[in-house]
Design a protein around this nucleic acid. Structure first.
Length: 233
DNA sequence: CCCTGATTCGC
DNA sequence: GCGAATCAGG
């Protein structure tokens, strides 16, 4: 895979939205986590909290000059943002339910007397597809991208139903991918158990996913539930 | 162990 | 420019 403009845009977007390099990597596909990080840096994307780069000059109790394990005389080029200060813990504004008071006045009694053209209320035909997805007609296409982000984007908070559940983004090679519920439902999630090594599911769900191959001619045991069958929870 | 991002360096 | 290998902290 190569870094097409499109893929680079995706990378930028996800990186800025705070997805981890791993997530971005398998979202894009065809690239490794390292590739994503490498590309991000080459693009000059802002670095993010790294576990390995907490502070700058942590001179330990080494009395003598510490042996310079320096691999390379790093170019002194450095941003003027010299925050040599003793890493004061930034006053992290707790994400409390504190509504931004600076929010532009709500359009409560918005004097709509302006010349806004009446948004012709056309009859909308909306149907619900499998899984609860809304079907859109050709004319229902939204503008490709909502106009400039109104405010700082905050990672979507998981809905209450899904809290603590295993979501699509949580899946890795060692997490059971057995779906719980049905796509489109508010509480749809994945099993999330430790995987049965070598399989995409945990031991229990492997038992559900795989049937032993029986010798020809033998009578089939209890038929498994058909996929479209009664919902089992 | 798993994860994370940063950096280096051969290609 | 690319990304595997490596490093190093959580």
């Amino acid at each position: 895979m190569s870094w097409t403009d499109e893929r680079i845009d995706q990378l930028k977007g996800m990186w800025e939205r705070g997805l981890t390099a791993s997530q971005i990597a398998d979202e894009l596909g065809g690239v490794s986590r390292n590739a994503v990080i490498g590309k991000a840096h080459r693009l000059g994307l802002q670095s993010r909290p790294s576990p390995v780069k907490a502070n700058e000059a942590p001179r330990k109790t080494a009395a003598a000059a510490p042996p310079p394990p320096v691999r390379k005389p790093a170019p002194e080029v450095e941003a003027p943002r010299t925050v040599a200060a003793p890493v004061a813990p930034a006053p992290a504004p707790s994400r409390a339910p504190a509504p931004a008071p600076t929010a532009p006045a709500a359009p409560a009694a918005a004097p709509a007397s302006d010349d806004a053209p009446t948004p012709t209320p056309q009859p909308r035909i909306i149907s619900v597809g499998p899984g609860g997805f809304l079907r859109q007609g050709p004319g229902d296409q939204q503008a490709p991208i909502p106009p400039a982000p109104p405010r700082r984007l905050v990672p979507a908070k998981p809905s209450a139903e899904i809290a603590g559940k295993t979501s699509l983004l949580d899946l890795t090679e060692r997490i059971c991918k057995w779906p719980m519920g049905h796509p489109g439902e508010p509480d749809f999630h994945f099993c999330g158990e430790q995987v049965n090594p070598g399989f995409p599911y945990c031991v229990e769900h492997c038992g559900r996913a795989y049937q032993a191959q029986l010798p020809r001619g033998t009578r089939r045991p209890p038929p498994p539930l058909p996929f479209g069958g009664p919902r089992v929870r």
